[in-house]
Design a protein around this nucleic acid. Structure first.
Length: 483
DNA sequence: CTACCTTTGAAGAAT
DNA sequence: ATTCTTCAAAGGTAG
């Protein structure tokens, strides 16, 4: 395995090098921090994580406002300041959402122990203990160098508390047993310590190594084999609802918010699959509800159904997805908007208004997530999930768009309603809704959102002036579909 | 009940 | 080498 340094990241993490151009951002920025390459920013982030603890405040790391902030001021300076004020005021709290990297690791003590130094881990946090991401990309760290790293999460993975982890929502959760005092030593050895007498749960060998060899992996919190019932009890919901929560990976947050403590749950008898893996017993494709007759070889269709029922390792979340998951609840609260399409448009605008440093946090997280994902599922490929979602016709003809004009108009209306919220994320929801929507951002371009929507059918390139990852100016895609 | 909408980014396929 | 396609999350909505 190559070195996993910033230059040796062979996982395609050129994401952090993307120089996003938007609304005049290509202008020269006298600001030093703005001139920094995102890669350098991320490198410094890593260095900070190793050299500093909590002494450097978020405000210190925060870049000076972009020069184009003035030009954007007419779009609402509050928009620029809003999220940062949230940071400063501590409103940037970990989201209750829990995402895929929810490791079913029954014994992560060695991995988690260094994070005990994190003051955010209150004793009550034993019900939901935020996992601090290990820095997987630090050159010279033994565990990362080890190409023969076990497919389950190595507890030799070096862990260094990331400075941003203090306010970023944790991406991982883990076993309460991880906080046994003897493992809480802040002095963490990057070298493997399994042989040092650490208890190594037999479940740790149960991690799936490939989609084909999927094996249920144990749940860190020790949920019983019938999670639906447990969740239903814990959530006070029906089994189906709890199941839905499980499928969406938010069940833990629901449990936590409902005061559910895993310590009150009897020890597990079996395991609950990794949320990144859509469990076959939970997520069943339509028409795959009936089981196959035992001893009967599956027919082609049944074989397909069997394939569909196979657990499905989801893609690791990219930076924007991590950002969305973090910010969505805030947008919902601020804008009183529930439609995800509208929320995502708002979040897309907010994302673009983030400084490179702020974005770098999420790029950093996403890169680590990819690294961890690749370690957990070394044989997994994004192609494995092709077809897991029903193929959608992404490009519609203009006729089709007209036919669906009502829906589009509704979306536009919702967007208009939320436009002011995009510009003023910290404004009170009431003011955002009461005042007529004043187009203040690119969402309300001169052509209007509707025009944007109809002209650019591929969402990825829907922003005028947005650069592709390849650094070129993208032209609006035509409405013709490629066969 | 299911697909769509909508966003950005990553990865793989296709050209 | 470049472009295109698919999927990742989310929840309301339309068919």
């Amino acid at each position: 395995m190559p070195q996993l340094g910033r230059d040796g990241d062979d996982l395609g993490a050129n994401d952090e090098l993307i120089a996003f151009k938007d609304e005049g951002e290509q202008e020269e920025k006298p600001n030093v921090s703005s001139e920094r390459d995102l890669d350098d920013v991320k490198s410094s982030l890593v260095n900070e994580s190793e050299t500093t603890n909590s002494s450097d405040s978020e405000a210190d790391r925060r870049p000076k406002p972009h020069p184009d902030v003035e030009s954007r001021a007419r779009h609402g300076q509050l928009f620029q300041e809003g999220p940062r004020k949230q940071h400063d005021t501590g409103l940037f709290q970990p989201s209750p959402y829990v995402g895929y990297p929810f490791f079913m690791i029954s014994d992560l003590g060695n991995l988690c122990s260094p994070y005990l130094t994190n003051g955010a881990l209150a004793p009550t946090g034993r019900t939901y203990l935020p996992f601090q991401w290990p820095l997987l990309d630090i050159p010279g760290r033994a565990a990362i160098r080890d190409s023969a790293a076990p497919t389950h999460l190595s507890n030799s993975v070096p862990v260094v508390q990331h400075p941003h982890m203090t306010h970023l929502r944790p991406l991982l959760s883990y076993s309460p047993e991880a906080f046994s005092p003897q493992r809480a030593s802040p002095g963490f050895s990057p070298e493997p310590v399994w042989e040092a007498g650490m208890s190594r749960s037999p479940h740790t060998a149960c991690y799936p190594v490939s989609p084909g060899g999927m094996t249920p992996i144990p749940h860190p919190l020790g949920y019983p084999p019938a999670p639906r019932r447990q969740f239903a009890v814990a959530l006070g919901r029906s089994g189906h609802q709890a199941e839905s929560q499980l499928m969406k990976g938010s069940w833990c947050s629901s449990l936590v918010s409902s005061g559910f403590s895993p310590r009150l749950v009897p020890p597990p008898q079996t395991s609950v699959p990794h949320p990144a893996i859509v469990p076959a017993s939970v997520k069943q494709e339509p028409g795959a509800s009936h089981s196959q007759q035992p001893g009967k070889p599956p027919s082609t269709s049944e074989h397909d159904q069997e394939e569909e029922r196979k657990p499905h390792i989801k893609k690791p979340l990219n930076a924007f997805m991590l950002y969305m998951r973090e910010e969505r609840p805030k947008v919902v609260a601020q804008c009183k908007v529930k439609e995800s399409a509208t929320i995502n448009q708002i979040l897309g605008q907010r994302w673009h208004s983030l400084s490179k440093e702020e974005q770098a946090k999420y790029y950093d997280l996403a890169r680590k997530e990819r690294l961890l994902h690749s370690k957990l599922y070394p044989n997994w490929s994004a192609r494995d999930n092709y077809g897991k979602k029903k193929k959608r016709k992404r490009v519609k003809s203009e006729t089709q768009l007209e036919e669906h004009g009502s829906r589009d108009q509704m979306s536009v209306l919702g967007l208009k309603q939320a436009t002011s919220c995009v510009s003023h994320p910290v404004a009170s929801p009431a003011s955002s809704l009461d005042s007529p929507a004043t187009p203040t951002t690119a969402l309300a371009s001169p052509a209007g959102p509707a025009a944007t929507h109809t002209e650019h059918t591929h969402s990825s390139y829907s922003h005028s002036g947005h650069c592709s990852p390849y650094g070129e100016q993208l032209q609006p895609l035509s409405l013709t579909t490629k066969p």
